[in-house]
Amino acid sequence: MNLHLKVWRQKDAKSAGKLADIEARNIPEDASFLEMLDIVNDDLTGKGEEPIAFDHDCREGICGTCSLSINGVPHGPSETTTCQLYMRKFKDGETIHVEPFRAKTFPVVRDLIVDRSAFDRIQQAGGFITARTGSAQDANCLPVPKVAADAAMEAAACIGCGACVAACPNASAMLFVGAKVSHLALLPQGQAERTSRALKMVRTMDEEGFGNCSNYLECEAVCPADIPASVIARLNREYTVAAVKDGVA
């Protein structure tokens, strides 16, 4: 199949960018979106032009590195990651807009690559447990109710891709932070740092400049890991309880 691409090209973080018209020719229907870009890049390099820079790593939907807003939807039309999106989802001759994930907090590095290290800094502020490494203790000493295990697992599925921020009209990171805080708040291992984690992660999220949640739920609609918006309700609860505990302590 042949497609007309409108791709964001930007030399570096400081330059202004613009949408460029690029033709994608002879693309197999079963190619993934990233493989389509590989073919286009081969073509561009053959002609002595700069290939399109884009992020990718595992290409199997688990690492969260791929991004792209495709026709106005982060990760495109298939409710998966971009690497798991196949060209059969598009029609021959279609025009496809390919833009970077946009947010003030995700500055463009080059073309379609954005800097998502703000997420790393939020994680480093509290998205972990402090535990002695070494031999694990007997699992039966840490009972986890099935309901909590399932909810924690659901939240732990977040791959940190940033599509939630890219889709949110406010560029809010509440779905991501909600997933991280929920995951550990539900498990016994997360209890010791439960209060400080909620406070620190939200503080870092705010300091980085992410927007506030208006409950539009656009994040949930694009999340490739199916993180439900209920993690945001949990975060709202965790944070307020943490602020009260910390305030009176």
């Binding site: 409108k6 964001w8 949408l19 807003s69 026709n71 106005g72 939807v73 807009h97 833009e99 946009r102 947010a103 003030k104 907090t105 995700f106 463009v108 889709a167 009209p169 406010n170 560029a171 809010s172 400049g209 992410f210 927007g211 539009y216 739920l217 656009e218 949930e220 609609a221 694009v222």
Partner: peptide
């Protein structure tokens, strides 16, 4: 927080 606007946005939920 939104920064540079998208050329195309498709709303799915709001």
């Amino acid at each position: 927080a939104r920064g540079t606007p998208y050329a195309v946005t498709t709303r799915r939920a709001a």
